[in-house]
Design a protein around this nucleic acid. Sequence first.
DNA 1: CACCCTCGAGTTCA
DNA 2: CTCGAGGGTG
Length: 763
Amino acid sequence: MAATETSPAADFERARAEADELEARLADLDDAYYERDTTLVPDADYDALKARLRELGTAFPELIGQDSALVRVSGRRSTLFAPVVHAERMYSLDNVFSVDEFREWAARLERDAGRAPALLCELKIDGLAISLRYAAGVLVSAATRGDGVTGEDVTANVLRIPGIPRRLAGSGHPELVEVRGEIFFPVAAFEALNAEQAVAGERVFANPRNAASGSLRQKAEGKSVTELDLMERRLSRLRMLVHGIGAWPHPAADSQSGMYELLAGWGLPTSRNARVVADADAAVGFIEHFGAHRHDVEHEIDGVVVKVDDFALQRELGATSRAPRWAIAVKYPPEQVHTRLLGIEVGVGRTGRATPYAVLEPVRVAGSVVARATLHNQDVVRVKGVLIGDTVVIRKAGDVIPEILGPVLELRDGSERAFEMPTTCPECGWPLAPAKEGDIDLRCPNARSCPAQVRGRVEHIGSRGGLDIEGLGEVSAAALTQPVIPATPPLTTEAGLFDLRLEDLFPIEVIVKDAETGLPKPGDDGRPRRETPFRRQRKAPKPGQPPTKSRPDPPYDPDGPFDGDAQSIVSAAAIELIAELQRAKDKELWRQLVALNIRHVGPVAARALAQHFGSLDAIRAAGAADLAAVDGVGPIIADAVVEWFLVDWHVEIVERWAAAGVRFAIPSHPGPGAATAAIDGPLAGLSVVVTGTVEGYTREGAEEAVLAAGGKAVGSVSKKTSVVVVGPGAGSKETKAIALGVPIVPAERFAELLERGLDVLAE
DNA sequence: CACCCTCGAGTTCA
DNA sequence: CTCGAGGGTG
C-alpha cells in the first residue's frame, strides 16, 4: 500500500483534500467503534489510514488541527449513562507496529533519560479501559474512558464483575485514588456467551472486546426476569486487570512494579504476566515470547505495553498532549487480513462428502501462510456471501484453522462470479446426491470405487486412531490408490491392503503437486515432475571409477519374486510399510474395527464393542438389539454396524483381511457378553483429561496409562471431569478447567497421580 | 423430553 | 479445534 509520492514541489491542496478525506473516514470509523461497538474494517486498515494521515501531517503540519483523529483521544462520550469527569485525565498510548519501531522508541528514550532504564512489560489486553475511584478505600464510582476527560458511569454493572473489591483490603488507603485497568471477556467465556446469545435469539458478538463493551452497557430497567438473568450472567463472566493509577498525589511506591504490588496487596487484580526487564533487548524478548504465545493467555491481547518502571523518571519524561512519553504500546500484526478468493474447488472425503474449499492468494495470518480454507458446503458459501474473485476477510479460528469471514463488498468491481456446486463428483464423475432427503451435504454415492473415498479410507486405516501404521499416511495412501503408473492402482479398494507385496509398491510413480497451488510441479524438462515414493534411483557409477557403495542395499530376500530394474533399489519406506502392515495384523481388535470405516465407529465405540464381544465374528453375529445394549452404543451405531455387514464389498474386505492373517479377535477373551469387570486401580471411577506435553509419555501413552490405572481418558474438559493433567503447551483446556473449578495436576506429578489417584491433590 | 457430555468427522500447515 | 449429532441421564 505504497503512498502516493508527493512531488518535491509539494502540492499542498492535494494533500489537504486527501487529509480531509482521511479525517472524515476516521471519524466515521471511530464513531462506529466507540459509539456502536462495531468494527467496520480490519484494524490493519484503520492503522493504515492513520499512518497515511501521519505522513501527510509530517509533510504539512498545518493540516493537523486540534480535532484531528491523530490528536484527539479516540472515543467520545456516550449519553447512555451519566457522565463522570475523571479526576485525572486518562491517556491513551502511542503505538508502534514492529520490533524495529520499538527499538527506535527505546533509543530515543535512552537518549532523553541519559541511561537505559529498567522497563516494565505487560500485555495489552484487548478490552475496555476503565477507571475505578476509591475514596478512603471504598469504591465510589467506575467509569469508562470516554474521551479521556469525561467517561460514563458504569458503577452498577461493574459491581457485578467478580474480583473487583468494593472495599480495599488492608488499611492506610489514600483519601482518593483512581485505579486504571482493563475490563475484558475471557476468550473461553466469550465462546460460551455467543452460544447462549444465539440460543436466546440475542445478538452474537464479533469479538470479546465488543462483548465486554456490550455487557457493560446493559441497562437493567425494563428488562424481564429472564433478560435480567442473562445480563447477570454476562457480567459475571467479565474480568478486570489493573495496570495503573490516576489521581493520587503521592503514591506510596516509587515504581510501576512497586505500585502493582501495592495494588495487589489491596486485593485488586493484577496481571501475572507483567515483568520488569533490564533493557530494550530483554523487552524485545518479552514481546516476541507473547507474540508466539498470544493464545496461551486467558484474554485477547493486541500487543505489549512497555513502561518506564521508575516513577521519578516517568515524571521527568512527562507526556505530550495525548500520551505519556514513558510508555509505548507495541502492536502485534493483525489476525484478520484481506486476501483474494481465487477460486472455489470441491474435495471429496473418505465418507464421500463433497466439500467446497476456497483457494486463496497465499497470505500470512497469525504466523503462517494460508492458501486454503474450507467452506463446508454450498449453503455456507451462500450465507457467507462470497463470490469468486472477491477480496475476503480471513482469520485464524481457534489459533489454527483459517476461516473466511466474508467479502469486502466495497472492493467488488463486477468481475466476480458466483460459485456453483458441481452436480458430479470431481474425482469419479458420479452424480452427487444428498444421503437423505433434506440433507444439505452432497455425497458421492460411489463409495466402493471413488478414488477419493478409497484414498481417504486407506489413510484413515493408517491413522493414529486406527491401525497406526507408520508410512501409511496421506502421501502413501494417494500413491497406492491413484498413481500415474501403473494404470491399475495397487489398491482399488482397501480389501487388498494386506495382500500388498514389495513388487506392487516398486513400480509406483506419482505426480508431484505444489503444496501452495495444488498444481503439478514442472520438472527439469517442463513436464510434470514424477516421483517414485517406494524406490530410489541408484546413481550410475562414473566411468573409470570403481562403483562406490555409499549405503548398503536394504535387507531384502534375493530369492523373492522381486523384479525391479537394476538401476533402482527399494526404498526404506517400502520395506517399512510392508513390515508395519505385517505387525498390524495382530494389533488390538478395536483398531482393526476402526480400520473397517464403519460409520460412527471411532476409537471409543470400537473399544466398547471389542471389549464386549471379543471378536469380529461375535459382533457380526449380534443383532441390533445386542449391539445397542453395549454401554456407549445406541440404536444409531447399532444399525450402522448391522447395515455395514449387509454390503457385499464390505464383507469382502473382512474376508480378504482375515485370509491375509488379520486376527480380528482379542486372544483369551471369555466370549460375547461376558461381564467385563471394572478395572480396579488408583484412578477407578475417575475421568482424566491430559493436555499439553507430559514428559516421558506420548499423547497415546498417557491415555493408555490412565486406562491401565482404572481411569477414563476423555478428550474435553467438562464439569464431570475429575482431574486435568496440565503440561507445557496447554491451551484452552487449562483455562476451561480453571473456569469450571476442575482440579489441576501439573505434568511432573502425572506418574504420582497414576499411583496414588486423587490423593496427590491433598497437599 | 431436555439437557449435557462425548464422540466422530472434517480441517490447515509446518 | 470446532461443529454437529449420538448417547445417557435426570
